[in-house]
Amino acid sequence: MKNIGVAIVALFALSCFSLFVGVKEISISDWWQTPQNIDLFFISRIPRTLAVVLTGASLAVSGAVMQMLARNSFVEPSSVGTAQSAALGILLVTLLYPGSPLIVKMIVASITAMIGMAVFLAMISRLPVTSPLLVPLVGLIFSGIVEALTIFIAFQTEMLQFQGTWMSGEFSGILRGRYELLWLCGVLAILTYVVADQFTIIGMGKDASINLGLNYKQVVIVGLFILALSTSLVVVTIGMIPFVGLVVPNIARKLMGDNLRASLPWVAVLGALLVLVCDLIGRLVHFPYEIPVGTVLGVIGSFVFLYLLYARPAHAR
């Protein structure tokens, strides 16, 4: 059960399978035989599969980091207003500077995501530690408010349709040249692994962090920075995807505990697996049409979330 090799092999096998799922039928034996097939592979199939894997890993790692920073295992960037704040940022920059390049949108989205996260953390620091379930509830309300504000602005400016692309994540539009920013998410995930011990200590609380000689504020800011950047990268390229950051770290936590050094590889691989499976379901269930991965995850994720909420309330942090 605790052999990560098995999970990696499963991920690799499913990734290969994913390459051969699509409207144009291609088999393992003939994908390299015509130039059209090769093009299709390198322009669409491979980028899409890579995007799915990178997104899944990044969302799950972000969830794990946020759970450490908030000291609560029921939060993730898309359930506490971070991803919504990023979407608001994109909308604002698109309205104010319509022709701005993707990188500018990215930066603005990261800044608004960071603000949204700081507001959320400031709010939950005033909540009593004895009722951990208040934290995700406050997060849901806050994200609802940010989302409502975004939709209101989009409605008033006739940008609603455009706004929908950031709100509901899906991979059908991924082609070569449109997903490469996600590699940065991979880099951020590796960076997280490098400083994993510091996030684990932050998760043990402020007193424990000071006692072990950590500059608490500095580590929290680094964490916020990584989270804001990877969340807005995913929102910009794919759109919002719910529940991955919530469900995967909780499963990894059950298996491996809270020591991120040990659990992060699991978090990343399981996150990639979950999103890949959901993307495949979305592609196959109504073939040749697609259901957005966000919708599939919304259905599967909410059941798992309810299970996690009710299965062990005593361990809620």
């Binding site: 000291r71 400083v195 994993a196 011990d197 510091q198 684990t200 200590i201 998760g203 043990m204 072990l212 000689g213 950590l214 936590r253 505990g257 809270d258 020591n259 050094r261 040990a262 361990h315 942090r317």
Partner: peptide
Amino acid sequence: SSRMSLRDLVGFGRYPHHKG
């Protein structure tokens, strides 16, 4: 409230010396 094995927990006492 961290879910950590006792060995890992005790190990974090060494953090100031080894910095990860």
